[in-house]
């Protein structure tokens, strides 16, 4: 298969959530989201109650994929950091460990400079966790806990 399956364990999830929480605070962000490059939502922090985080994750991954497509067209490897500026809100995207996208949503309470500065440190820390997580996933039994599911379990999902 092309990519290795992403498996998130409790311990790493707590570490990741703590970094996102600190980034939200230190960057004066409205919200911080971490999404898988394939569009799967991982976690978020800040004012996310009114945000459709599932859609945001999918569109962030789509934007990133399109931006990287553009990079390759002009002979760049990728554009690891992107900034979208709006009237009220801005979005900053950065790639973490080639696996995830760190999205920071901020308004006039913060600035691009501050966000960039804080994102840099958070990205490095997140990259370390992702590295450890991939190693752990490789050493764990493949497919667990799904190796134990039965055909009946799957069929039951579809019983009306």
């Amino acid at each position: 298969m092309a990519d290795q399956q992403m498996v998130m364990y409790e311990e790493e999830f707590r570490q990741i959530a703590a970094i996102c929480e600190r980034l939200t605070r230190e960057a004066n962000a409205k919200a911080v989201l971490l999404v898988d490059k394939n569009g799967q939502y991982i976690t978020s922090n800040g004012e996310t109650n009114d945000l459709d985080t599932t859609s945001l994750a999918s569109l962030a991954a789509g934007t990133n994929a399109a931006t990287n497509g553009l990079a390759k067209l002009i002979g760049e490897k990728d554009f690891p950091n992107n900034f979208l500026e709006g009237e009220k809100y801005n979005l900053h995207f950065s790639i973490v460990a080639q696996r995830a996208i760190l999205v920071v949503m901020f308004d006039q309470r913060s600035s691009l400079g501050l966000v960039r500065l804080r994102v840099k440190r958070a990205s490095e820390e997140l990259a370390n966790i992702f590295g450890a997580m991939l190693q752990k996933a490789q050493s764990q039994a493949q497919g667990a806990p799904f190796g134990e599911i039965t055909d009946d379990d799957i069929d039951n999902l579809f019983s009306e």
């Binding site: 399956q5 992403m6 999830f13 898988d36 799967q40």
Partner: peptide, 9 residues
């Protein structure tokens, strides 16, 4: 690839 999250199950 599928994404398994043990934390949020």
């Amino acid at each position: 690839m599928s994404f398994i999250n043990y934390s949020s199950r």
